[in-house]
């Protein structure tokens, strides 16, 4: 899979905004992406140095649509730690 397909979108939330203070940035990434791929993708896209990647699968939640229970798809979240001093500016929050 191509590196450009790895990062889906940055996650901009209150919690992640707090993490950014420690140089940690969160993204939704492709389900089949691996830690090294995420590292490469972030370094390429934002021209920064990544010193650590944590990934986790966020389980989809059950939603009730009408009478049926529907499970939203699970997705993968990655939290990357940047080299101290590096910053990412999210210009587009898509």
């Amino acid at each position: 899979m191509h590196l450009y397909e790895v990062l889906r979108r940055p996650l901009i939330t209150e919690k992640n905004a707090a993490l950014q203070m420690e140089g940690k940035y969160a993204f939704e990434v492709a389900g089949e992406a691996t830690k090294p791929q995420v590292k490469q993708a972030v370094e390429l896209a934002f021209k920064v140095k990544v010193i650590g990647v944590n990934v986790m699968t966020v389980p989809g939640k059950e939603r009730r649509i009408g009478r049926r229970n529907v499970r939203k798809p699970s997705w993968k979240k990655a939290i990357v730690t940047l080299q101290p001093g590096d910053r990412i500016e999210f210009f587009e929050n898509v």
Partner: peptide, 15 residues
């Protein structure tokens, strides 16, 4: 979205 009222940092709000 993603923030409770009054908790969004200035950059985020600005955008």
């Amino acid at each position: 979205p993603g923030f409770r009222k009054g908790k969004a940092p200035r950059e985020v709000l600005e955008r």
